[in-house]
Amino acid sequence: FDIFALSSDSEQQPISVMEAMAAGLPVAAPMVGDVAHMVAPDNAILLGEPGSEAGLIDNLRRLASDPALRAALGAANRAKAEAEFDERKMIERYASLYGRAMGRPEFGR
């Protein structure tokens, strides 16, 4: 695939977006849930208003017609996914969070 499109009206932190980022894809999606915080900053140009079918179509057309943009945004998303959504790092963060909540900060180390 060359492009990841999300057309949801409601999301929180969609794993499908993380998977697309890890695969080095640009993401065209509405600004729902945490999507805007998840994608690389450069990819924000492809996030439209929730419920705007026309906006999503425009963003998909833009990506379809610009291979260099797809490659650049895909690379930026992959780098962000590796930095922030690496499985090992996420497990460490959850362990730390739960450890602090249980009054056992050493739990997350």
Rank of each mutant, 00 (worst) to 15 (best):
A28M: 05
V35R: 00
R70L: 06
E106Y: 02
D9H: 13
M31L: 13
N59F: 01
A81L: 10
F107G: 02
M31R: 15
A64T: 08
L69I: 09
S16V: 15
M90H: 03
H37W: 13
A81M: 06
A101P: 04
E92T: 03
P26N: 11
S8G: 09
F107P: 05
M102G: 00
A36M: 07
A5H: 07
P50K: 13
I57D: 09
N43S: 06
E92C: 07
E87A: 13
N43Q: 08
L56W: 08
I3L: 13
E11K: 04
P30E: 05
E87S: 09
S52K: 06
P26M: 10
F4H: 15
A20Q: 11
S65D: 15
F4V: 04
G99T: 06
A23F: 05
N59W: 10
A95T: 00
L97W: 10
L25N: 03
D42K: 09
E87R: 15
L69S: 06
R62A: 12
A64H: 12
P14Q: 04
L63N: 06
N59E: 09
P67W: 07
V17L: 08
E92Q: 14
R62G: 01
L6E: 05
P105A: 12
G51P: 03
G108M: 09
Q12N: 13
E82N: 12
D66S: 10
A79W: 04
L60A: 02
A40K: 04
D58Y: 02
R104A: 14
R88T: 15
A72M: 08
M38A: 09
G33F: 05
N77A: 10
A68R: 14
P41A: 13
E49C: 02
D66F: 07
F85N: 06
L73F: 04
S8I: 05
L47W: 01
A54Y: 00
P67S: 13
A36W: 11
E53H: 05
G99E: 10
V35Q: 03
G48S: 13
A22H: 12
S16P: 00
R88S: 14
I15K: 11
M31N: 15
V35C: 09
F1N: 11
Y94C: 02
N77E: 10
F107E: 00
M90N: 11
F85K: 02
P14R: 02
G51C: 02
R104W: 14
G99Y: 06
I15C: 07
E82G: 11
L6A: 10
F1E: 12
R109I: 00
A71W: 08
G51K: 12
A22C: 05
P30V: 03
A95P: 04
A28S: 08
H37Q: 15
A20N: 11
F107C: 01
M38R: 04
G74V: 11
M18I: 15
R62S: 08
Q12Y: 03
Y98D: 03
A23M: 12
G55T: 11
S8P: 02
S10L: 14
G24T: 05
R88W: 06
M21D: 09
L46V: 01
A22K: 10
E11M: 01
A76W: 08
A40I: 04
G108D: 10
M38T: 11
A29M: 08
S96I: 00
M38D: 07
M38Y: 07
